[in-house]
Design a protein around this nucleic acid. Sequence first.
DNA 1: GAGATAAGTATGTAAGCACTCACTTTCTCA
DNA 2: TGAGAAAGTGAGTGCTTACATACTTATCTC
Lengths: 200, 200
Amino acid sequence: MKERLSGEERRQQIVDAAIDLFSRKGFRGTTTREIAEAAGISEAMIFKHFATKRELYSAIIEAKSETEELLASAALAAREKDDAGVLRAVGLKMMEQTERDPSLMRLLLFSALEGHELSEIFFESRVRRLHEFLSSYIRERINDGRFRSVDALVAARGFIGMTVHYLLMHEVFGVKRPPRSSPEEVVELFMSIFLKGIER
Amino acid sequence: MKERLSGEERRQQIVDAAIDLFSRKGFRGTTTREIAEAAGISEAMIFKHFATKRELYSAIIEAKSETEELLASAALAAREKDDAGVLRAVGLKMMEQTERDPSLMRLLLFSALEGHELSEIFFESRVRRLHEFLSSYIRERINDGRFRSVDALVAARGFIGMTVHYLLMHEVFGVKRPPRSSPEEVVELFMSIFLKGIER
DNA sequence: GAGATAAGTATGTAAGCACTCACTTTCTCA
DNA sequence: TGAGAAAGTGAGTGCTTACATACTTATCTC
């Protein structure tokens, strides 16, 4: 029943098992023994691939920081000055991404709370870029005279906060989704409130 | 230099030291040795007051769950159907509370992420009540015909999310506050966007 | 001021932890 | 086909952890 895998395959399997555990229990809350068990191998194998537990964790954070272009559809809408489209794209992307990979948000929070050295890189690639994209769009639309004159960065954080908080409730606090509202409807509501609220 | 305190005083001192450490490093990331050192006593003293480390942690969570009436000023504004006043009061209260006691938010997050058994009670007293208060106010104003017909709970989460996310950025991710905006101004902006966005 | 009571400590202890080492099994390819 | 390389393991090692025990010192009460 035991199968022998290539180095690459086994390494990936270890990483996958570790992602699951680290995201659920944090760095300190996860033991190398558990990771080995989850991957169906001996502890020693982990240390053949990663010098230390911390190195394994860092490899995960760096991998998760690789930034697929989340902002493609939003950037498209931005070029056409489609305000609703931009907000919708940003909101949906966050929803979709979190749904596809729920470990991401938990890892990000854990690494920040536990003060991991790479958490800033993680934050930079996953959060800051989004804030910057949206706030510069808002700034542009203020200059166009379409939005009220507000602090663009604070406003951007406000919109992102609606969505992030909503996801936080599920992924971290285990609140069940309102049965009536699909992610699309929720984003639509946040978008419409925010847009109506910021338009001149 | 060593002073002998009464049981009550010492107990409180242990709790204070533990709050600081648990909020910065989590339950698993904090050792009883560290707590003892921070309180300037021997480890054994901790176990004279609390049977286990977990019991100490639980005592803290329960204490932090004691719910001072956060909603007094908001409830007042609600009675007068002062929409701006309600939102402002809710937003400011969160800001002020977090500023006064930054450990609260981190403890709440840590306990939820680490899956502590009492984290639900904590969440209930600190978060859910706020959501329920605000969503029922919004529902009321929808019935009054003053707000658009939206999902009141989702909308409430949206507003709270703006503020919570803003605080999360500082307290957890260490983002520096925008130098131009005071907490009052930030709340004022969130309030105005949300209110304008949800009014009929 | 004696003796009870409570505050406080020094020194264990057993379990759990990240990590090591010496070793075996399986694969690869000249 | 055989030898070197790579995948894999069991059984440690020393350190740290939460917690226990047996003890000393200060304070209170009558």
